[in-house]
């Protein structure tokens, strides 16, 4: 497994895209830090990048990578290696290289500008989102044998989690406006990793004061030991379930 991971990593790095991604994140972070001296504001701007770009890059890159390494997988499948470790080493290789790019891409400039502690929660949710959307990317890849179709499904996932879901959520909130909605929305936002990441992030910052009673209610929940455990567990579940589903399909798929 570790040996295979080495080859997957070599394969991912050979594509250069990961390097480009890291440089891009670095450039964005550096520019934002240069434009604004207030680390809190930089983190807010970076949050937008993390919430949009990280999921998009993760899921699309994963899908493309899966189909590009189809030959590699074929080659491995004729060897005495089980499918599970082929799949998991693929996952680990893609997720870890994207995570590393994000960590360095944001972490290094932040360190240089002396704001490492402020970006820590951001990097935390960024890493979670990376792992989650890599999982979803593998799920999209396992659903079809057609690369173009798989990329389509991946983009649909991204679109759903960043936009469509929130639209539905807003509609629900608006429609049931007469009822106490705090607890239902708390549950509904946990069902979308991007929303959960955004709220975890907002609540960790001073700016949550603008969120009024609802913000206070959520802060109460997410600030408690149980709430922290809950949000991490939810994020963990979001990494796990698409991954396991994809693994199940991968084990059964014909190559």
């Amino acid at each position: 497994m570790t040996r295979m991971l080495k080859y997957v990593l070599q394969d991912v790095l050979r594509a250069r895209f990961v390097l480009f991604y890291m440089v891009f994140m670095m450039a964005v972070t550096t520019i934002l830090f240069q434009l604004d001296s207030d680390p809190a504001k930089v983190v807010m701007s970076l949050l937008n990048v993390v919430l949009l770009v990280v999921p998009l890059v993760s899921i699309v890159f994963t899908t493309i990578h899966y189909f590009n390494s189809y030959e590699f997988i074929l080659l491995l499948m004729a060897q005495p290696i089980n499918r599970k470790s082929v799949f998991l080493s693929q996952y680990a290789g893609v997720a870890s290289s994207l995570c590393l790019s994000l960590l360095i891409g944001i972490g290094l400039p932040a360190l240089a500008f002396g704001a490492a502690t402020q970006v820590l929660p951001l990097i935390n949710v960024g890493l979670f989102l990376t792992c989650i959307f890599v999982s979803l990317g593998f799920l999209a890849s396992s659903l079809t044998r057609d690369k173009a179709k798989a990329i389509g499904i991946a983009l649909l996932f991204w679109f759903y989690f960043t936009l469509i879901y929130d639209g539905i959520l807003l509609w629900v909130i608006y429609a049931f406006n007469d009822y106490p909605l705090e607890t239902p929305t708390l549950i509904l936002t946990s069902l979308n990793p991007v929303d959960l990441a955004r709220i975890m992030m907002l609540l960790s910052m001073d700016i949550s004061a603008l969120m009024g009673y609802t913000g206070a209610f959520f802060k109460d929940f997410f600030g408690s030991g149980f709430g922290i455990l809950f949000s991490f567990a939810m994020m963990g579940l979001w990494v796990m379930w698409p991954l396991l589903l994809a693994l199940r399909r991968f084990k059964k798929n014909d190559l």
Binding site: A15, Y70, E71, F72
Partner: peptide
């Protein structure tokens, strides 16, 4: 030995 050998292109 497969019918058509497919290998990682950049290797």
């Amino acid at each position: 030995m497969p019918q058509i050998g497919q290998y990682p292109a950049n290797l």
